[in-house]
Write a protein that binds this DNA or RNA. Structure first.
Length: 471
RNA sequence: GGGGCCAUCGUCUAACGGUUAGGACGCCAGGUUUUCAUCCUGGUAAUAGGGGUUCGAUUCCCCUUGGCCCUACCA
């Protein structure tokens, strides 16, 4: 039975890298009939907040990633850690250390100068029981270190193959702080053991931590799970995509949501970062991903998170939505009142193909629903040979052509306008460009008859007249 | 400084040791269009460098270079 985990640290909003790691865990578990555990790794008391945990849970829901067990919180599992800590203590695999931060710092500096591996000197390792008792009696609280053996640690990583590291390069790491808090390396291992995790799928930043974890698993007498280390998500400059991207925007899931990216696009895009199905297909639903995903095909090299590519993916999914559905999704992004639902849907249809994200919609839809204001210099168009006087004549002609129109369909509006073009012996654009400007007040927009139809006859004529007055 | 990991167009990536090194995004050009966008056509652009192994290397090995990660009483 395969079992994986979602182990976020609730110290901030959900990071995109965290989301991707969870997605890969999800794909692996669901594709192999496995279970998923959600575990909040909140051992860092100062930085962890329940609000963040809630946000992460909401993010998972948004992406469509569900789990089977949890949420567990490490902050609520103290007794379990205590139990295993005592076990280690009894086995002599850990020892108390009373060294001060300054001492340790000096030690490290010295080692660096001498080109030695940065390891704890094990000064406190030699402490006799009575010395320990004495130090404790004097009010000093120790940290507890794991005694690292010198031999080689090896394991087979599902994506990176054989990995080996020499214990003599690894320092005796701290598993418990002086304030008695247990530290990450210890709690993950205990939890993975207790929760019977079979596959640990996580970011490459944990690759060199794995040796420590394996030592701990073995010291605890537990079965060592299988590891798979995912390539990191990178900024454009190939630095690790941490809290912020290179433009200074937060690299969080929440930001993608607020910029109007669809969850299906985010999932699709993230899945293809560091993995691909081996063919040229590029669009997948979550379900299809579950079917196609093979962890052996995950890459080793980091992948740059390129927003332009996400845009492309997002516009694909925006186009697949029905206009009704899209309108519903756009609503929260609008900053003006929309009273007429039908009109919104009609307008949305006109912009659906031009949309890269939901947030852009308000700019493209505004003129349909609000009074417009624009500058006269929008009218002249060099290529079209339109100046202000020509623009005014065009609006007058347009008004004349549409005033008496009974049938306010796109086809009828188009026919009336094109007839006018022929009648005046001018180019299409010489009539249509000024009308488009008068109707939208925008530089770019959908076509004249589409807009006119959605706007309605009354509003269209009104805007033409306003244009004429302006000129 | 110590250790680990990694390396194909700008980006995401494909290529049983044998391909004109393919696709997509972006970009550029042309076409369609009333503008922009869309759409269609075409183009640009890569195996980091050096040694091996081999009839033959993007692919296997070594070195160099570069990047990333770990090296916390963070996770």
């Amino acid at each position: 039975m395969i079992k994986v985990r979602f182990p976020p640290s609730p110290t901030g909003p959900m990071h995109i890298g965290t989301a991707r790691a969870m997605l890969f865990n999800f794909l692996f578990a669901r594709g192999n009939n496995g279970k998923i555990v959600f575990r909040s790794e909140d051992t860092d008391r100062e930085r962890s907040k329940v609000e963040y945990e809630e946000e992460i849970l909401a993010g998972l829901k948004w992406l469509g990633l569900d789990f089977d067990e949890g949420p567990y919180r490490q902050s609520e599992r103290g007794e379990i850690y205590e139990k295993h800590f005592e076990k280690l203590k009894a086995s002599g695999k850990i020892y108390p250390c009373f060294c001060s931060a300054e001492e340790l710092e000096a030690e490290r500096e010295m080692q660096q100068k001498q080109k030695l591996p940065p390891r704890y000197s094990r000064k406190c390792c030699e402490l006799k029981p009575e010395e320990i008792a004495q130090l404790e009696a004097s009010g000093k609280n120790p940290v507890w270190r794991f005694r690292v053996e010198a031999e080689e640690i090896r394991f087979t990583d599902l994506v990176r193959g054989e990995i080996k590291e020499l214990g003599k390069n690894i320092s005796d790491f701290v598993i418990r702080k002086a304030d008695k808090q247990f530290l990450y390396h210890f709690t993950v291992v205990v939890d993975d053991m207790e929760m019977e995790i079979t596959h640990v799928i996580r970011g490459e930043d944990h690759l060199t931590n794995t040796s420590k974890h394996i030592m701990l698993f073995e010291a605890l007498g537990a079965k060592v799970p299988t590891f798979a280390h995912l390539p990191l998500l990178l900024n454009k400059d190939r630095s690790k995509m941490s809290k912020r991207d290179e433009s200074g925007k937060p690299a969080t899931l929440e930001r993608l949501k607020s910029e109007g990216y669809l969850p299906e696009a985010v999932v699709n895009f993230l899945a293809l970062l560091g993995w691909n199905p081996g063919n040229e297909r590029e669009f997948f639903t979550l379900t299809e991903l579950v079917k196609e995903f093979k962890i052996e095909k995950v890459h080793k090299a980091g992948a740059v998170f390129d927003l332009e590519r996400l845009d492309y993916c997002n516009s694909h999914y925006i186009r697949k939505l029905t206009a009704e559905d899209l309108a519903e999704k756009i609503k929260p992004f609008l900053d003006f009142e929309v009273s007429d639902e039908k009109k919104l849907i009609a307008a949305v249809k006109l912009i659906q193909e031009r949309l890269k994200n939901l947030a852009e919609a308000k700019q493209q839809l505004r003129f349909f629903f609000t009074e417009i204001d624009y500058r006269l210099d929008l009218f002249p168009h060099t290529k079209m040979q339109v100046g202000l006087p020509e623009a005014k004549n065009a609006l007058i002609a347009g008004l004349a052509a549409l005033e008496g129109l009974e049938d306010w369909s796109e086809a009828a509006i188009q026919a009336a306008l094109m007839e006018k073009v022929t009648q005046l012996g001018i180019k299409n654009g010489q009539l249509l460009w000024p009308i488009r400007v008068a109707l939208t007040g925008e530089k770019f927009s959908p076509g004249v008859w589409e807009i006119a139809r959605v706007l309605g006859k009354v509003e269209t004529l009104k805007r033409l007249q306003q244009g004429i007055d302006k000129l």
